[in-house]
Computed example of a mutant assay.
Amino acid sequence: MMYVTPLSVLLALALCLIVAWFLKRPMSARARRNASGQFVQLQDGIIHYEWHGPATGPVLVMVHGLTTPSFVWRDQLPALTQAGYRVLTFDHFGRGFSDRPYARYDMAFYMREMDQLLDTLGVRAGYDLLGYSMGGGLPRNMVRCGETVFAN
């Protein structure tokens, strides 16, 4: 039988706090130095994004889930760009190379993030959205979404 001592609980708590501190530390220019893509300043911080495919193709915005960064789309990009899509991938705040602002990460926060990103990049109505997990829920809440929405 295994016994839990107060010291082991205290050590586990300290380890959790250390891990949480590392996960919330700000993204730095040094960390972004070798990132592909570009960065844009929004109201809540800097967002990492990348365009793929032909400049004149129909725009497809790919929205990743809550716990993963945008690189999860890399295996789908070749087929989509070969089909002629101009694909936008980006890292949500708190993921990948984007900032980790101190904020309440709720649906309103992510909707503001998407609206500001698309406005700043000049993405107008008529684009398509592809999302999964939490990223699939964002299109259902968008009032200015494109013609087709794919989500699970």
Rank of each mutant, 00 (worst) to 15 (best):
L77V: 06
S36G: 15
R30C: 08
N34L: 15
G96E: 03
Q43G: 13
C16H: 00
P54Y: 02
D99A: 00
H48K: 06
Q38Y: 09
P78F: 03
V61W: 01
Q82R: 14
F93P: 02
R74F: 07
Q82E: 14
D91P: 08
R95V: 04
V61K: 02
I18Q: 07
R30G: 15
V59W: 03
F90I: 00
G94D: 04
H52L: 05
W73C: 05
A20N: 11
H64N: 14
G53W: 02
A103K: 06
L77H: 04
D44I: 05
H48I: 06
D99V: 00
F22N: 13
R95P: 01
P101E: 00
W51K: 02
T67H: 07
Q82F: 01
D75F: 12
A83G: 08
R33P: 09
F93D: 02
P69E: 12
G94H: 05
V72I: 13
F39S: 09
V87I: 03
V63N: 08
P58C: 05
H92W: 13
W73E: 05
A35R: 12
L17Y: 08
G65A: 09
T56D: 15
Q41K: 15
S70C: 08
D75Y: 13
Q82D: 12
L80Y: 06
Q38I: 00
G45W: 07
G53D: 01
C16G: 09
F93Q: 04
F71E: 07
Q43S: 15
T56P: 00
V63W: 03
H64S: 14
M27P: 08
Y85K: 03
D99C: 00
S36Y: 11
E50T: 00
G65I: 06
Q41S: 11
G65P: 06
F22A: 11
N34I: 10
V63L: 13
G96K: 04
G53L: 03
D44C: 07
R95N: 07
D91M: 09
H64A: 13
D44P: 05
Q41Y: 02
V40G: 08
A35N: 11
P78G: 05
G53I: 01
W51N: 01
V61D: 02
Y49R: 05
F71C: 07
P58M: 02
